[in-house]
Simulated assay, not measured.
Amino acid sequence: MEKRVDAILEEVHRIAPLSGAEPWDNVGLLVGAPSWSVKRIAVAVDVTEEIVERAAEKGCSLLLSHHPLFLHPLKNVLLDTREGRIIERSLAHHIALVALHTNWDRSRIGVNVALASALSLRDVRPLLPATEVELWGDGAVGFLDVAIPLQDFCVRLREAWNISWVQAYGDPRRVVSRVALLGGSGGGFWRAASASGAHVYVTGDLKYHDRSDALWHGLDLVVVDHGEMEEWSMKHLAMAVREMTGLETEVFPLPRRMFSA
């Protein structure tokens, strides 16, 4: 069984509508042709040369990534650059590259919904609801089944999302029950998290002054790796794509290269 790239995109954009993407974002088909045939699909949080090669070895001719290979227009495509090398290898292997970025963040089954589900949060709602009915919105807010100390929450979160590190700010003994989260770079959303009544806010990037202001307002904070946080949702994307298209779909995780010295 095989399908054209454009037919697959039509199906994928039902769960991650293009209308959900930020104006500055770069989503959709970035490399390849709509007419290319696809028998097997690869899914990854980032596009790397290593993942393109692994996808080729597995017979994939479409790579769905969360982060776009490039966000801004390229002035040239040079083979001694990261983007140029990846484009060259993708074309050589006849692998189309498609990005589902902020439209996957805001999907009703996307990043934030998947993260909330992994924590078994109850009464989950968007941190900032979308105006369009087919979209979820930004972030998520919900309740833990049992209130627990912040320190124990960090352990639970690390295990639930399979992430390599957790950095918390606040009193480790403070009991938390209402959780706000936003996958990826969500430091600027701490005010919405505070207004939601959350005891703790979890995100992937947080600037120093945002951290200071949030703590002053009584909001505990948890910071995790941006990519690892969002990578948890890739298996949810793969399952949905497999179900919609009927094509074999495999997640290609990024290697973890971070260490503490």
Rank of each mutant, 00 (worst) to 15 (best):
W232L: 15
S107R: 02
E22A: 10
G188R: 09
G28R: 12
V155G: 10
P172Y: 10
D138L: 15
L74A: 00
H236W: 14
V47G: 00
L215R: 12
D205S: 11
A147K: 12
A214Q: 06
H236N: 11
L97R: 03
L119G: 05
L74Y: 08
L221T: 01
V133T: 14
R242T: 11
L219Q: 06
A44D: 00
G137K: 04
Y169L: 10
R156S: 12
T245C: 07
F143W: 15
R257G: 11
K3I: 02
R178G: 06
A92G: 09
A116Q: 04
E132N: 05
S260R: 15
L237S: 04
H101R: 03
S233R: 04
I8F: 05
N26C: 07
S120Q: 13
F252Q: 04
C154D: 06
D152N: 13
I41D: 01
F70H: 05
R40F: 09
S196H: 08
G184S: 07
G137T: 07
G139C: 10
L63R: 02
R85W: 01
L144P: 01
L206V: 05
A118Q: 11
I95M: 03
P126H: 03
Y208K: 02
A42K: 10
V222D: 08
K207G: 13
S260D: 10
K75D: 13
I41F: 00
M1R: 14
M258A: 14
S37A: 13
P129V: 10
L237Y: 02
P126M: 09
R82T: 14
K39F: 06
R108E: 12
L206A: 06
C60H: 04
N103H: 01
R82D: 11
R242P: 02
E49M: 01
H93I: 01
A195D: 15
L254R: 15
A7Q: 15
A16I: 01
K39I: 04
A114H: 09
M244D: 08
Y169M: 01
A180R: 05
S35Q: 14
L135H: 04
K207V: 02
M244A: 14
G110T: 09
V146A: 13
P68N: 04
R89E: 13
D225M: 00
K58L: 13
L9C: 12
S177F: 03
H66E: 03
G197V: 00
E50P: 00
V251E: 01
E53C: 11
A56K: 08
E49I: 12
G227K: 05
L91D: 03
S61C: 03
C154Q: 10
L128P: 00
A55G: 09
P68M: 10
S37R: 14
G188V: 07
R85C: 00
F189Y: 15
F143A: 07
G246C: 09
H66S: 05
A261L: 15
E134I: 08
P129A: 15
K58E: 14
L157K: 12
E22P: 05
V251F: 10
P17V: 08
E250W: 05
W161Q: 07
V43A: 02
V45E: 00
D210L: 09
V155E: 15
V124S: 08
E10Y: 11
K235W: 08
P172G: 10
G137D: 12
A214M: 07
A21Q: 05
V222N: 11
E132C: 03
P23R: 03
H226S: 01
R173G: 12
A130W: 03
L97D: 03
G204R: 04
V12G: 02
S194A: 15
F259V: 13
P129H: 06
D80Y: 12
P255H: 09
